[in-house]
């Protein structure tokens, strides 16, 4: 199955990003495809390379980036939501790119299922 994922919350403050990551990992592990992960609202903070969690904690920014590299998952940060929150090219972590909301609609159309992670 082809999945699209929408992450609506930032890392650490909320479990949404963890759940989305674990879901994507499990889906890929079972032979499914994750076409794109779209980061919206505070979810754009998942792409901040200045994020520095304590060394014994999970590093979500890095984990997403590694998934993008290993499994060719497209990680898109919403440009409008990102600009409000200072997530621009200068602080963008590896594996992410910034684009418009059209990318969310597009993956909704292209995927068999779009999953929303947030409240």
């Amino acid at each position: 199955m082809k999945f699209g994922i929408l992450v609506n919350e930032g890392p650490f403050n909320h479990q949404a990003s963890d759940s989305a990551y674990q879901f994507a990992k499990a889906a890929i592990g079972r032979g499914h495809q994750v076409l794109r992960v779209f980061f919206y609202y505070d979810g754009v903070n998942n792409a901040n390379k200045l994020s520095e969690p304590q060394s014994d904690d999970r590093n979500l920014v890095k984990l997403w980036g590694e998934m993008a590299k290993t499994h060719k998952v497209d990680l898109v940060v919403c440009v409008a939501a990102g600009m409000r929150r200072g997530i621009k090219d200068e602080v963008l972590a590896e594996g992410f790119h910034i684009s418009g909301l059209g990318q969310l609609t597009e993956v909704g159309i292209a995927a068999d299922r779009l999953l929303v992670f947030g409240d």
Partner: peptide
Amino acid sequence: MSEEPVFDTQGV
């Protein structure tokens, strides 16, 4: 950064 994939959404 890697190229953005383009999905075929024409007419859907």
